[in-house]
Amino acid sequence: MDFLVAHFAELLFYFLAGLTVLFALGVVLFKNPVHSALSLLATFVTVAMLFIFSHAEFLGAVQLMVYAGGIMVLFLFVIMLARTEGIQSEAAFLSNMAPAAVVGGVLLGALISAGILLGVLASGHGNPAALEMVDGARLGNTEAVSMLLYTKYLIPFEVVSVILLVAMIGAIVFGRKDRFSEVGKEEVDS
């Protein structure tokens, strides 16, 4: 009982982390794309919980809003509108099992060792003391993040948003290429 009380936070953290890994596995292993998408949603939610748990409340809430609320809905949109019956032939996927296993194993090993290394470096999850170094951090996590983003990292922040805008415009241009050329053809024809 004493152990439980003393290490409650850590136990909860590992429980959530394990849940996250399980759901992430589900994304790859489920055969029905909608089930995979649901599993991905569960992964996003548990990751958001982990963020909140590690004193990154702002990040957790944004994770919920942007990934779980926005991006997943679009995923589901695409999956539902596309006919999925034909995609379920797994023969092509399974024939590459051996090389896939090797690559996956190497990646997993790299990830685990990186995780251990980071764990040793940071020694402990979440570092509320680091927030204290930011101006106005006494107010809370959200204020600390915005203070850093709009003062110290203003230019990188703006550059990232411009890059995102470029990517978005690029996607629209690629996506509408056919329609533009069709319009052009009609004009030529008439």
Binding site: F58, L64, M72, V73
Partner: peptide, 18 residues
């Protein structure tokens, strides 16, 4: 009384769409 209440509400309500 959490210090991200409003963000949390917006986030949770967006889960309801599913």
């Amino acid at each position: 009384d959490v210090n991200i209440a409003i963000l949390l509400l917006l986030g949770i309500s967006s889960i309801g769409v599913f």
